[in-house]
């Protein structure tokens, strides 16, 4: 049983680890993403150099970002920076999960941030598909969402 708390700079600890729920990449997820970002590259729907269709490289970025929701209530906050490295192509049929760790928290010009590194893996093979890190702005102390 998880006791959700509203995330804050004071609460988050460097070294803290996150894990997303697992997610089965389905053909309709690939199609929905293509609509959302208006990118209908044929590799995502037909044959690709990798045999069958692949998914958009950025498809799972939100899964990484949402890891924190597995433990915290996240009030709207600025997403400041994003780094990603695409290690292996994503495909429909993969069951994937993102793993993350807070590597820094910092104050800059009166604003508070946390930096989280992550890896997104194919749960079946353990292969790293995407890795990277993101920087999110936080409120300093406890704050109610509504």
């Amino acid at each position: 049983m998880i006791e959700f708390k509203t995330i804050s700079y004071d609460l988050v600890q460097v070294g803290e680890e996150f894990k997303s729920d697992d997610f089965l990449i389905k053909p309709e997820d690939v199609e929905t993403f293509a609509f959302a970002v208006d990118d209908h590259h044929p590799w995502y729907f037909d044959r690709s150099p990798y045999g069958g269709p692949i998914a958009h490289p950025v498809l799972l970025a939100n899964q990484a970002l949402m890891m924190r929701h597995s433990r915290y209530i996240i009030p709207a906050g600025l997403h400041a920076k994003m780094q990603m490295e695409f290690v292996e192509p994503l495909r429909a049929g993969m069951r994937v999960r993102s793993y993350g760790k807070v590597i820094d928290k910092l104050e800059k010009r009166g604003r508070y941030y946390m930096v989280t590194e992550f890896e997104t893996k194919d749960e079946e093979s353990g292969t790293v598909l995407v890795r990277g890190q993101f920087t999110q702005m936080l409120f300093k102390g406890e704050r109610h969402v509504a």
Binding site: W43, P57, L78, A80, M82, Q83, E85, F86, E88
Partner: peptide, 10 residues
């Protein structure tokens, strides 16, 4: 697709 990197600020 294999080996690409993105590093951006919003």
């Amino acid at each position: 697709v294999r080996g690409g990197k993105i590093n951006v600020a919003f």
